[in-house]
Computed example of a mutant assay.
Amino acid sequence: MKGLFHKRKFHFLISAILITGFVSACSDGSKSKQPTEETQVSIKQENLTLKYTSGIRSILEDSKGNIWFGSHQEGAALFDGEGLTYFTVENGLSDNQIRSIYEDEAGTVWFEGGKGLSNYDGDKMTTVLARDYNSKTQWQLEEGDLWFKGDETVGFNPTETHPGVYRYDGSKLIYQAFPVELKGGGETVYSVSTPFIKRSNGSVWFGTYGAAIGYNGTDFEIINDERLGLDKQTEFLHIRSLFEDSKGNLWIGNNGIGVLKYDGENIINFTQLHNLTKAETGGNSLEKIFSIGEDNEGNIWFGTYQSGVWRFDGKSLTNFTEEDGLPSNQIWTIYNSKQGELWFGGASPSGVYLFNGNSFERKY
Score class of each variant (00 low, 15 high):
I252A: 11
H238K: 12
P195M: 10
S203F: 03
G217L: 14
L230N: 05
A211F: 06
Q233C: 06
I213E: 05
F196I: 09
R199P: 00
W205L: 06
S200C: 00
L260G: 02
R199N: 13
T271Y: 08
L237T: 01
G214Q: 09
S200K: 14
H238M: 12
G256S: 09
R227W: 01
K198A: 12
F196M: 10
D263T: 07
L276D: 09
Q272W: 04
N255L: 12
L260K: 01
E244G: 05
F243N: 06
L237V: 01
D219K: 12
T194F: 00
S241C: 06
V204H: 11
L237S: 00
W205D: 03
G264E: 01
D263P: 03
G248T: 09
N201L: 07
L273E: 15
G202T: 08
S191D: 10
E221S: 14
A212D: 09
Y215W: 14
I239S: 02
S241K: 03
F236T: 13
I267S: 04
L250G: 07
I239C: 01
T218G: 11
N254T: 12
T234N: 14
I197C: 07
N216Q: 12
L230M: 06
I213M: 02
F243G: 06
E226F: 01
R240M: 13
S241L: 00
Q233A: 15
S193C: 00
N224G: 07
Y262E: 00
G256T: 05
G256D: 04
D225E: 04
H274V: 08
N255T: 04
F206E: 02
E221M: 12
W251P: 00
F220C: 15
G202L: 09
I213T: 04
W251T: 03
S203D: 13
G258K: 02
G214K: 12
